[in-house]
Design a protein around this nucleic acid. Structure first.
Lengths: 224, 224
DNA sequence: TTGTGATATCTGATATATCACATATCAGAA
DNA sequence: TTCTGATATGTGATATATCAGATATCACAA
């Protein structure tokens, strides 16, 4: 969205949805936190209706649980869930790469290189918002090459759950540097049109829970 | 649910959700059909609130589109979507089989054989509800072996979208017989602990859009 | 002291009224 | 005749009031 509309046409439901997502991302709404509908609607200055609408969507997406007549809580993200999410994303991203390999051209490889480079720059400047976005953009290149809209939607939702979970102020530098190296290796394989190896690398290294586990435990604070 | 509760404690929202799902399954609510909230809430004898709650959930799951202030329509299921769904399910089911293979025992194989046999019986009796359910149960055995809850949830939702789409009165007998044969081949591979071959069979045959395309076109009436 | 029933309070669920945007129709001017 | 602005109608979005299940607390009987 590059233009800012004069009138705000975003529905209240969507605005509440975005507000709550943001609060979770910022760690204001932590796992286990109760969301009181009366208080929240009053604080936001809207009725309970768009709040409830937003919460129903957040529930379907896995972010909260609505306990009928008892309360709404923000879901924790367990290590098992992270493990599950990694496995699904790995399977779908590698499938996307393989099925979309015929569509991948030099320009895509070039673009991935530029995005990885932008990630390096962002890391130097400690601009983690940009780092995060370039990371998503890089992956989306080969995801989009498959033309499979369901893969895109599914991994987007899962990544949203992984990344919009309350995150610490700082990324883990070592992990991010490792990620960038992995991107480089992946891009190299794709450039050489070793698509099966690239797909395996996505699944067995980049999105391998076991390979990434030590960082994940640190990042999601499972080491206490 | 084997016991019928004396009091009906299912929320209206959930009852409306199930009602609408059923109407779609039965073909009463066809793709492209408009759902008028005033009329529907009146017909169901409930207010617009639980109806709207149910529709929001159905929208997130892909069944309907809520056009703000304009109307709610039942989404068509395009051939491209079916292709996308097949690819995702194939990828996830094969992943589930591979990652859960260590948990698969003779009792699981035996159970799959019994379920496939029950499918044969159901087909003879033209009892397609049972056929359908046994089919799901059979797949769920190796899906559950992975212990990956997100895989289960994802394929359940996608299958729901595929199977609860308005379906014709009759299945395609030839296709169902072919499916049963494919199950037999798959069970054979699993029994011999050829898990990689089994996973490939799931992805490249049983859930291959290209392999199943002629039946899919017939079933979903894309041949007009 | 413990257990049970009654009552109070909490909180989301639902009903109803009203709003606000989208679209169609009508009337008048050019 | 065509175009434009005003008005009417349609339909989901939102606000507000009330309901109804869940839980906590209190009082009384055993």
């Amino acid at each position: 969205m590059t233009t800012k509309h004069v009138l705000n046409l975003t529905s209240l439901k969507d605005q509440v949805y975005m507000y709550l997502s943001d609060q979770m991302k910022k760690g204001v709404l932590k796992p286990g936190t109760a969301i009181n509908m009366d208080e929240t609607s009053e604080r936001l200055g809207v009725s309970k209706t768009p709040l409830r609408d937003a919460l129903i969507r957040l529930e379907v997406e896995g972010f909260v649980t609505i306990h009928p007549r008892r309360g709404v809580v923000v879901n924790p993200l367990t290590l098992q869930e992270i493990r599950d999410y990694y496995q699904v994303i790995g399977a779908l991203e590698s499938t996307a790469l393989l099925s979309g390999s015929a569509s991948l051209e030099d320009s895509h490889v070039e673009k991935m290189r530029r995005l990885n480079k932008a990630m390096i720059e962002a890391l130097k400047k400690r601009n983690f918002g940009v780092y995060y976005q370039k990371n998503l953009d890089l992956h989306d290149i080969y995801i989009n090459s498959s033309g499979n809209r369901i893969i895109k939607m599914t991994v987007d939702t899962l990544k949203k759950r992984l990344y919009d979970f309350p995150r610490p102020k700082d990324y883990i530098r070592e992990w991010e540097e490792e990620s960038i190296k992995e991107h480089q290796a992946l891009i190299g394989l794709i450039a050489e049109e070793k698509f099966q190896e690239a797909a395996d690398y996505i699944r067995d290294v980049h999105w391998s829970f076991e390979v990434q586990e030590k960082y994940l435990r640190k990042y999601y604070l499972f080491d206490e």
